[in-house]
Design a protein around this nucleic acid. Sequence first.
RNA 1: GCGCCUGUAGCUCAACGGGAUAGAGUAUCGGCCUUCUAAGCCGAGGGUUGAAGGUUCGAGUCCUUCCAGGCGCGCCA
Length: 567
Amino acid sequence: MNVRQLLDDRLGEAFEQVTKECAPALVSPASRPEYGDYQANGAMAVAKRLKTNPRKLAEDVVGASDLTGIVAETEIAGPGFINLTLSQEFLKGTLARADLVTKVPRRESIVIDYSSPNLAKTLHVGHLRSTIIGDATARTLEILGHNVWRQNHIGDWGTPFGMLVTYLDEQGQSSDDLGNLDHFYALASERFEKDPTFAKAARKFVVDLQSGKEGAITRWKQFIELSTSHMQRIYEQLNISLNPDHTRGESAYNNDLAQVVTDLDEAGLLSLSDGAKCVFLKEFTGKEGKPLPMLVQKSDGGYLYHTTDLAALRYRHKVLNADRILYFTDGRQNLHFRMLFAVAHASEFVPKSTKLEHHPFGKLLDSNGRPFRSRDGSTIPLDHLVEEAFERARAIVQSKNSNLGDREFDEVVRAIAIGAIKYADLSKNRLHDYTFDWDSMLAFEGNTAPYLQYAFARIQSLFSRGNLSSKSYRADIVPENENERNLAIQLCRFQETLELVGREGMPHHLCAYLYELTSRFMRFYETCPVLDAPEKDRKSRLALCARTAKTLETGLNCLGIAVVTRM
RNA sequence: GCGCCUGUAGCUCAACGGGAUAGAGUAUCGGCCUUCUAAGCCGAGGGUUGAAGGUUCGAGUCCUUCCAGGCGCGCCA
């Protein structure tokens, strides 16, 4: 249940009744504990507009509101804040619900375009943020009940593939070099440059491919399959929920491109400029105020990524019935997406009611503020990154103790290694550049994935010590002291946090939530005995622990991070 | 030149349609393990939110100018 929304609705009605106009209640979690659990900030804004006393207005709103069974205490503070304290019965009732997450009332069809690597190159750190953040958003929207269409818009078409396939043919189908695609690519380009016969064959292959010659298509497909399996292996290592069903690459739109250009022409948007076909929109200007074109067809007849993106957009609208389409790419593509969305709407390829959202993110930097690369200046392949995380996590888990068996040891290492990489990224506001630092993400202190995983493991340990199961444990939660209550309140805020993440495509809100939840749990756990508590307290506290474990597990699952029962 | 993004504690980061005294972690210093995992908990110090104006009862958040860094601006994606 979304408590924040519930309060906002109830107070919103009262605001409307009192002011006779639509005035938002502006409910948010209280900024300080002494202000209660939630606060409503709407009174000041409306009072200003209506030129009345905000404190008086706040009082009237509280008087007119129906908060029975929800709020135990209201207080008007400062210039007109309404501070709300939830009632014990409401907490108890909310936490007694079996469902942790309620499905949103309006189920939307949501397309999420993320990861989208180019298959001519190996997956590297440049793909990390899009893949991780997009995946967390997809999982979150899905758990909220939306119909999520993951779209992996891979680069699987174009001249590099001519070179690669020709080289693959030459080397034999089973070439293991493809595991390191960049190396393979480098070898292929070298041949391309130095061997005219090879270059000729590669060029001919591209022509054959584009004209749809069967043999060429078959070999191209074989290459794509090899490269895709490599990509898929990395997704599995990283616990990314993308699978081949989600792949719809550039090549999938080849047959639509001519039609896109024709339709743009029919919509009266197409211009010919220096032999290229393009769309000029008056809101976009470039150097010296000259109109900025969006090129959709080159003078040699070839199409561009704008064209493909328009075709994809149309597919997502027409076939997938998208209500929202989200793109997770780095900020440099900002102009491209602004133009793309403007053209899509101007041409009516996509109706204005379909929300088109670019969710950009900053660069990946090293601790010196430079782009994150390996020592020799080359980009870091993701499988190397994962391997290093495993090695580092293995060393740490080994040093920590453990009577873990081999299998459990491996499981813990994996959860920690992958969790560390993902959480470090996900916990930051994606708009900013992000400093990648092994030591801080694997320090396991403070706001890191292992801290959350550790809390989960402690709870599991508690339940196994009591011969109980955290999954099935049921009892009323009746918070008696401050630490119990603080934990209970935080548990009640899970739904509103998920909805916030879904709305904004910003998983760091969920990380902040889970971290706060965990610190509150740790404080509670430090001060309140559970198994040895008197029967009445024991039940309620066990239920608090069980609910915390379930929330942690579900929350981390939304982030694509695993929990472990021991560590 | 035009446009977009970023600037918060030594470091890494929060602050959700403007809200109350700008919060965490880390590092530093000081406490807490015969008792449910110390990968933990408690406490201390640490800030002119890049700068200056403005709007407002109220500005890290909005507006203007400036400074610094990054990125983008026609046939790659």
